[in-house]
């Protein structure tokens, strides 16, 4: 007959063991997925990947140059559109609407936009930019990515500005600085590392997005830098190549996946380093 004490200890031991196993279970998948991309991706990397364009079906050789360039163009469009909008909206929240009822509503809606399914955002970009204009375009893809980037930037800008000590603002205003000058010269500066981190994390997030590009930027077998026509981009090329029956396409998809993961991890680590370097103050 087991005493109550032993029974409680036993239940505790079993559940704690399960907790440890669950953690190992979580770590197991990260390691497996990263290991897979490394194992298949690294051997598939060669110089042609960066100097040649995507090959037609069945052909040997080829690379991903047009996809890399296309992805960078799309990211550039997203950053150029998304950053100013995100920072300005975040500034209103963090400077003018901290305890504002409207601010709370905007913050709430922005948080929902932050988690909204990216495919729906792609459909929206299709509805406002592709359908009316009659053709797929790099620009519409960039806008779709910008819409995913914006809520990330809004949120970090808002949070970072609210961390700026009020005494800094009071000191500036006491010297007669107009409010707009105080924000642009002082609080933005104080929060700049944090805001930059937010932008980098946002870029990391959109650089792997595939779903919103499927029917906006589409894909292009050839090299193109024309914003008003379909453009090749890494995620969609990976999608197409990984689903294909051709061995060399699949290899190239792994190489692309590896490069995408390295790029995204570098951005995440970079933003972590930025925060740590400047300390936890802002």
């Amino acid at each position: 007959m087991m005493s109550l004490y032993t029974k409680r200890q036993l239940i505790n031991l079993i559940n704690m063991t399960i907790a440890v196993l669950m953690t190992l279970f979580g770590v197991f998948w990260v390691v497996w997925i990263l290991w897979t991309t490394l194992r298949y991706g690294l051997p598939a990397i060669n110089l042609h990947l960066f100097t040649q364009d995507t090959p037609p079906p069945g052909a040997e050789g080829g690379g991903l140059r047009n996809a890399f360039v296309g992805s960078l163009i799309l990211l550039a469009i997203a950053v150029v559109i998304g950053t100013p909008i995100g920072v300005l909206a975040g500034t209103w929240l963090g400077e003018f609407a901290v305890k504002h009822k409207l601010g709370a509503i905007v913050r709430f809606l922005n948080d929902i936009l932050l988690s909204a399914p990216s495919i729906v955002i792609g459909l929206f970009a299709y509805a406002i930019l592709v359908d009316p204009l009659g053709h797929f375009s790099a620009f519409s893809g960039g806008v779709a990515l910008a819409l995913i980037l914006i809520p990330v930037v809004v949120r970090t800008t808002d949070e970072m500005l609210r961390l700026v000590p009020g005494s800094l603002r009071e000191a500036a205003i006491a010297l007669g600085t107009p409010y707009w000058k105080m924000v642009t010269k002082i609080t933005w500066k104080a929060a700049s590392t944090g805001i930059l981190t937010g932008i980098i994390l946002g870029v990391a997030r959109i650089s792997g997005e595939t779903a919103p590009l499927l029917f906006t930027a589409l894909n292009n077998q050839y090299y193109s830098s024309d914003l008003w026509h379909p453009i090749a981009n890494l995620p969609v090329v990976i999608f197409q190549f990984a689903m294909s029956p051709y061995a060399n396409w699949q290899q190239m998809a792994w190489a692309g996946a590896f490069i995408a993961v390295v790029f995204i991890l570098a951005l995440s680590l970079g933003s972590r380093w930025l925060i740590n370097r400047n300390g936890p103050k802002v």
């Binding site: 990260v30 991309t37 990391a204 792997g208 595939t210 779903a211 995620p235 996946a257 993961v261």
Partner: peptide
Amino acid sequence: AIPSIIYGMW
């Protein structure tokens, strides 16, 4: 941080 396309491929 791993993009969903990688999950799909894997």
